[in-house]
Design a protein around this nucleic acid. Structure first.
Lengths: 164, 164
DNA sequence: CTACACCCTGTAGCCAACTACAGAGTCAAG
DNA sequence: CTTGACTCTGTAGTTGGCTACAGGGTGTAG
């Protein structure tokens, strides 16, 4: 068992908790490599270091990571999250942007769900038809070849959609 | 304007249409690089070649490509499609596998749509709450920080899901 | 003092399905 | 024969969000 809270700050202030990267990882469930990746990506600030170069995080990193996870859950990309963080650091309250993005997400989501519903209906119909008919000869699979579906694009591409 | 049908096969048989890769691309809307990629991936057989090394496809490639596109539309991965093709070439009728995969897709789709519905509801609720309340101080964005959502995982990862 | 767990940097790999390029060769019209 | 569009191979890049090393250094319990 490691001491979770030790390592006082150099300024002698009492009670300031310093965390090594592994401890942060433990407490958040986010992998060490991912934490370093987030730092590289500008999502986490460069933390203090020991003389030996170990990262020493203070408790606020947990807050930040919770923010990141929460924003991800809400459908923000890391890119957008970094935007929010830097916007905030430059003094702005990014909530307007947030609202805008969420609104856009909502619209996208509706579109995608509509596509999925259509797709689902087609798939189910297709399957039902297949169950009712036999296979023809000379085809890789009459089921697929005999199917006619409106959409021109592979579904997965349509579902993935959101980039940039 | 290029001649769409010319280039008789070496065996002198009349009426056999030979297509250069660019013509196949034109007729299917699938990019040249993609066609070569499909060949590398084992989705297309190696076609005849001219003395100079140009690919000469016969009309059956169009059939095959239609099959591939159709299967993609139905949600099959290229990996699965290759499976179907080779299974067929080894003499089996892969329709049972097809049916199985489609069935699985359907289940996955239902799950994903359920997730999306939950997510949508959460997002909409959140947005409504935001509109009703102001922001707090000291946060990057009170909107995100103040939100509590059940799911532990970023939504996009959950939606992408299907790999292997 | 010696293990041994932990941490460091930097780079490369993963997934799927393409897409892009460099540098060379080929084909057909005029 | 020249021009220019087309094609060839082989390799590497794209997207997003990680994940996995290799090859070293650090911190600490016993």
């Amino acid at each position: 068992m490691k001491p979770i809270k030790s390592r006082q700050q150099t300024n002698g202030q009492v009670g300031e908790v310093c965390l090594k990267i592994g401890e942060v990882s433990q407490q958040t469930g986010i992998g060490i490599e991912t934490l370093r990746f987030y730092e590289r990506s500008g999502l986490l600030d460069r933390p203090e270091r020991t003389e030996g170069g170990y990262r020493l995080y203070d408790a606020s990193v947990l807050e930040r990571l919770r923010f990141i996870r929460q924003a991800q859950v809400l459908g923000f990309s890391l890119d957008e999250i970094r935007h929010l963080i830097t916007e905030r650091k430059s003094g702005n309250r990014p909530c307007a942007s947030v609202r805008e993005i969420v609104q856009k997400r909502l619209t996208e989501l509706d579109e995608r769900m509509a596509q999925m519903r259509r797709y689902r209906r087609e798939l189910a119909t297709t399957l039902a038809e297949w169950d009712a008919t036999g296979d023809k000869d000379g085809m890789i699979c009459g089921l697929i070849e005999g199917t006619s579906i409106a959409s021109a694009q592979p579904i997965e591409q349509k579902l993935r959609g959101r980039k940039k």
